[in-house]
Amino acid sequence: MAMRKSRRGPRGAAERVEGLLVMLPWLISRKRVKLSDMAKQFKLSEKELMNDLMMAAMCGVPPYTPDALIDVFVDEGEVVAEVPLMFSRPLQLNSAELFALQAMGSAALAMPGADKKGPLASALKKLQPLLPKGDAVVEVDVRAVEYLAEAQHAVATGQFVAIDYFSPITGTHSSRTIFPRAVFEQMGHWYVRADDDQSGEIRNFRIDRIKQFTPTGKTTAPIIEGIEAEVDFFGTDLETATLLVRPAALRLVETYPYISREPQSDGSVRIELAVGSQQWLGRLLLRGGDAIDVLEPVKWVDLGKHTAQAVLKRYS
C-alpha cells in the first residue's frame, strides 16, 4: 500500500507545474486576464503568479524556436497567453475532483428551491460518464426546514423580519425583529445570521426554532455576509466540562465538538467539552443516562440527577 502525500506546506516544483497545467488551458481559453484577477482566482499572490508564469515562459519544445515556446507575458497588468497546442486542453479530472463535483453538485441540487431539471442537473449528467459505471459514490443528505426559503428570500431582498424565536436553554419564546445577512447549514441544522434588534448584535438563529417569520414591510439594500467556514458557536470564554463516557453513550456525546478525547482501558472515553449552558449539559446527561459521569467541575456532578428529577415531575 502506498502512503498518500500531504497537500499542505510550501509549494514544491511538482505542485507549481501542476498549477501551471491547470492555469494554462484556463488562460488560453480567455487569452487575456488581469494579473490581479488571475492571482485572486488561483489563490496566489501576484508575485507567486508572476514567478509561475516566468517558469512557463522558459518552457517549450526543442529546438526552442519562438513557435515552440509557451508564449505567456504580462502586458499592462494583463496576463496574455499564446500556448502551444499541447497545453490547450485541461488535465483529466482526478478522483478527488470528481468526488468534489459530485458531492457539491448533488448537495446544491438537493437544496430547497433548486431546479432539478436545470443547468446544474444537466452539468452533473454530463459528468456522470467520468465516474465508474453505475456508482453513486457520494451523497449529501440535505434536510429542508420550514421558513428556510423565506429566510433566503429575506437575505436576497434586504427585508426586515419579525420572528417568534424559541430558546431551549431558557425554555422561553421571544419576539424579535431581525435583518438577515446569510443563511447557512452547519452540523445538520439551518441557521439565519442576522442583525438582532433585541441584543443589538449579529446573531445566528436556528431556523427550526423560529415559530413565526413575518416580513415587516421595511426593506433596505441587502447586506450579504457569506459564511466562509464553520461558525464557532462556542467562542473562547465558555466553561468546560470533563465527562467519562461509556460506550453506550459515545455515539451521542461524539455528535458534539470536543476539546479533548482520551480513551480509557475499560473502553470508556474521557471527553472535555465546551458547555454552552447548564441546561444544555443537563439535557446531554439526561439523554446519556448512566453511561455518562461528570468528572469536572464538581458543581455539575449531580446535574443529570437534578434534570431527571425535574422531568419526572411531568409523570407524577
Binding site: W26, S29, A100, A107, V140, V142, A182, Q186, G226, E230
Partner: peptide, 25 residues
C-alpha cells in the same frame, strides 16, 4: 478539489459572498 475541478472545466470559482451556504467540511 472543487475549485480545481471548476478550473479544469473552464469555469471560475465565485469570489463574491453567497447568501446561502452549506458546510460539510
Amino acid at each position: 478539489h472543487g475549485d480545481e475541478a471548476l478550473w479544469k472545466l473552464g469555469g471560475e470559482r465565485a469570489l463574491n459572498a453567497q447568501s446561502t451556504s452549506l458546510n460539510i467540511q
